[in-house]
Structures are given as structure tokens and as C-alpha cells.
Design a protein around this nucleic acid. Structure first.
Length: 219
DNA sequence: AACAAGATTAACT
DNA sequence: GTTAATCTTGTTA
């Protein structure tokens, strides 16, 4: 706990957002709002978590970059059509599990891909999971690495983020300042034509983000 | 039935 | 810069 001006500052309080947060129809807004929140998993009898530093929005059936483009509705994409507030975890390149947050009302397949976290709780476990190599910032930078750190695989697809106890999100009064956030086109979606250029990726400068996290006393 | 491509990463040359 | 790893899905036959 930090002490300033002789007063004890309020400790950071983390709390799960309710249904309303996930039901917002504006998935791009939600993708931005998720930065600075905490992604938490309970896997292998351990709690691990990280502060979200990078997200991408995938916006419904009209988004040519989305698995649900054109209304595609397969066993894999079915999760995206559920009511906002569940996870969409799928296997990419047959190798990596990618974690998304399903948002919006039922039958609107919005999702936010979590592409980066700064490790917070359970550091020693995450260090083991990442192979004990590299620095802590690079360990959580990349969507495949996020699930690796958190011990999440496709079996966590469709879990309830609001009321479940496997994978969830917590928010606090902490926010990254706008100056550390960049908005860019999405990564690895060049096949999506014009939609590949949409400014749907939100990414924090890692070093600046870590400085703000430390200043806030989170990690 | 066969094949190509993919919301990636680590380990090469 | 290139490539292997390897599962799901859509396309073509």
C-alpha cells in the first residue's frame, strides 16, 4: 500500500464486471475498455493472472477477418453466437489456444482476442509454464503465450466469465493513460481485404505500461 | 477423399 | 528471412 501526503491511499480493489459490461453492442469499445483489466485463470489448482495490454475486436458477421464472417456458424464458431460474457477459446495453426471474450447480445458473434498480458498473480507458476526463459514482459506478449501462461486450452471454450470459476476478468479503478495506447490494424488478417485495415487493435507500450502498473501498486 | 490455409511461435539460416 | 509444428474448416473432386 502506498503512502502519500501522510494519508494511506485506497488499495486497488478488483471486481468482476457484470453482464452489462459484456452485453455492450460496441465490441470495439469493449476491446479498448479491457486494457488494464486483469485476466485471471484457475487451472492446475493455481490462480494466475495478468494485466491485459493488447486486444483486437472481431465485429460480427460483417467482419471478413472474423471466423463468423458471413454468418458462418460451425461447431467451432458456435460459441461466438452466445450471449456476451463467455470465453471463446480455439486452436490456431493446430498448435496455440487463443483466448477471446465473447461480447454483445445473443446471436451477434462479437469477440475480443486477448493478445497480451503483463503477468501479475502466480508469477513463479507462469515462469514455469513459459519455460523459465526470457523476461516477464515478453512472456505474455502474443495471444498464444497468454493461454500458455494461464494454463488455458480449448477445454476452456465457452466458460462463463461472469459466474464461472475457471477463467474470468476483474476490473478496478486502474486505467492506462491514453498516451501509452496505440490503435492499429489487426495482426495476421491480411486475407480479410479492406477489413484488414480497420483500426481494431489496441496495444499498450509495454515498458510504459509496466511503469504505470508499478506506480499504481498493482504488481 | 484430398488438400490448402489459418486471429502463431520458436528455432533455425 | 524461412520453416516446422499440427488441428479445424472450407473448397474441390
Amino acid at each position: 500500500m502506498e503512502i502519500s501526503d501522510g494519508l494511506v491511499s485506497d488499495p486497488i480493489r478488483w471486481k468482476r464486471p457484470g453482464d452489462a459490461f459484456y452485453l455492450d453492442p460496441d465490441v470495439v469499445k469493449t476491446a479498448r475498455a479491457l486494457l488494464g483489466m486483469k485476466l485471471v485463470s484457475f487451472s492446475g489448482n493455481v490462480i494466475t493472472s495478468g494485466i491485459i495490454t493488447e486486444t483486437e475486436a472481431y465485429a460480427g458477421v460483417s467482419d471478413r477477418a472474423s471466423h463468423a464472417c458471413g454468418g458462418r456458424r460451425t461447431r467451432r464458431t458456435e460459441t461466438m453466437y452466445r450471449k456476451g460474457g463467455v470465453s471463446y477459446v480455439y486452436l490456431c495453426y493446430g498448435v496455440h489456444s487463443l483466448i477471446n471474450v465473447v461480447t454483445g447480445p445473443p446471436d451477434i458473434p462479437h469477440a475480443v482476442l486477448i493478445r497480451g498480458i503483463i503477468p501479475a498473480d502466480g508469477l513463479s507458476v507462469m515462469k514455469d509454464r513459459s519455460g523459465n526463459s526470457g523476461n516477464i514482459l515478453s512472456a505474455g506478449s502474443g495471444p498464444g503465450k497468454v493461454s500458455k501462461l494461464l494454463g488455458i486450452d480449448c477445454s476452456s471454450n465457452g466458460t462463463d466469465l461472469v459466474r464461472g470459476n475457471l477463467l474470468w476478468i476483474e476490473a478496478s479503478r486502474f486505467r492506462f493513460s491514453d498516451s501509452v495506447i496505440s490503435v492499429t490494424k489487426r495482426i495476421g488478417v491480411d486475407y480479410a481485404g479492406e477489413d484488414a485495415l480497420l483500426p481494431y487493435r489496441f496495444v499498450a507500450d509495454l515498458k510504459a505500461a509496466q511503469t504505470e502498473i508499478e506506480k499504481a501498486g498493482i504488481v
